[in-house]
Amino acid sequence: MNIFRLAGDMTHLASVLVLLLKIHTIKSCAGVSLRTQELYAIVFATRYLDIFTSFVSVYNTFMKLVFLGSSFSIVWYMRYHKAVHRTYDREQDTFRHWFLVLPCLVLALLIHEKFTFLEVLWTFSLYLEAVAILPQLVLLQRTRNIDNLTGQYIFLLGGYRGLYILNWIYRYFTEPHFVHWITWIAGLVQTLLYADFFYYYFLRFIGGRGVE
């Protein structure tokens, strides 16, 4: 564990807590894409299949349970909770996210480190996570302005993988044979997809107005 990875995990944890806070306290999911949340639930479900077979550390297992629990409960809230469900703008959140799942699965079957069930699904989760934010970014453009909590959620979610990139650079120089091209490229693509969001998000800080 290094400071970059810890900062990345804490940033990721903060992003799900901000979203849960928004949905649970103000009972609203306005501006939040259910499709992105569903993709993230699939990402965690396919990435953490090893939670019962391989034990890394208490921290690792605890964080996996937190990410699994929070992503599925957010989907539950947005789909079935009577008050929250009403604030979900279904008409705007129309990105065909299932069209993202199949190509990622095919790509994972073609490009992976080992051809085993767990490894292919793990690789699938990497590819899917890289594009999982797309429905949310499209929704953001459609709804124009967004509230602070949603903006902070996206900012933290985008930032965590960027911190992971620093972690991979650090591990590459400190651990022999630490080379995982698939993880690195997927993580880079994921972070680059946030580039324009970061641009407008920082403009907000400079201009002191809502995220346009």
Partner: peptide, 10 residues
Amino acid sequence: IWVYEFKDEL
């Protein structure tokens, strides 16, 4: 016995 053989990152 939980054998560590997978990934150590989240």
